[in-house]
Design a protein around this nucleic acid. Structure first.
Lengths: 102, 102
DNA sequence: CATAGTGTAACCCAATCGGTTACACCTATC
DNA sequence: GATAGGTGTAACCGATTGGGTTACACTATG
């Protein structure tokens, strides 16, 4: 059975993935990685603790440090952003122009 | 020869695509579409004039109005965000952890 | 000519990103 | 055991951006 991405399950934050799948296996802490990335410890701490977003600039830095692509990180962040926006209600009241033309 | 996406060419802003490929063919102006989307005319005007970004919430609204997916709009925006971030210089100074371990 | 419609600008508020500074806590060293 | 250094987080600040409201200039319509 294929893996299912459902609307009622929040995607994993890229900060958590960064921590568990990239930093820990390499024995990297926040101080060391922030130095390599060229950002402040506060900035990286917020991301790793899922309290800040991966921006385009940060995605570029991470992609160079870990030999990944910026899109990998941006796609992860986008999934979180979209899931959070879907929790709101107003957007669902918009009606299709095909079904209900002006 | 395949289409080539190069770093020296800015991607088309999703606002321009919205205007030309979605609004104009349907004879939609900013006032009408903003009403359908449930946002202010100012908000939509900034997007259409490529002066504002497509947020996750806006992507959801557009996807419902035009029967597309939110990702279509978010991916377009991401390409612009990434291209603009790449114009900076600091990120390129980050060194790979594989090539240059701590 | 008067009115309505349209799109943009100015202003305000809120949220977020990023850095600096400071602090509390932990670890390492002597 | 005391001290110094390292670590991670919080508070504050500045800048930017998103969104709405109000106002204005311009255009279209009757």
């Amino acid at each position: 059975m294929s893996r299912q991405r459902t609307r009622n399950r929040k995607p994993t934050h890229p900060g958590g993935i960064l921590q568990r799948q990239y930093m820990e296996p390499l024995g990297l802490n926040i101080t060391k990685l922030s130095e390599r990335l060229g950002v402040s410890r506060k900035t990286l701490s917020k991301i790793v603790n899922e309290r800040g977003s991966i921006t385009a600039d940060m995605a570029l830095r991470l992609s160079k440090a870990f030999d990944t692509t910026p899109s990998l990180w941006l796609n992860l962040q986008q999934a979180v952003d979209l899931w959070e926006a879907q929790q709101g209600e107003e957007w669902s009241e918009v009606e299709s122009l095909a079904l209900c033309p002006l």
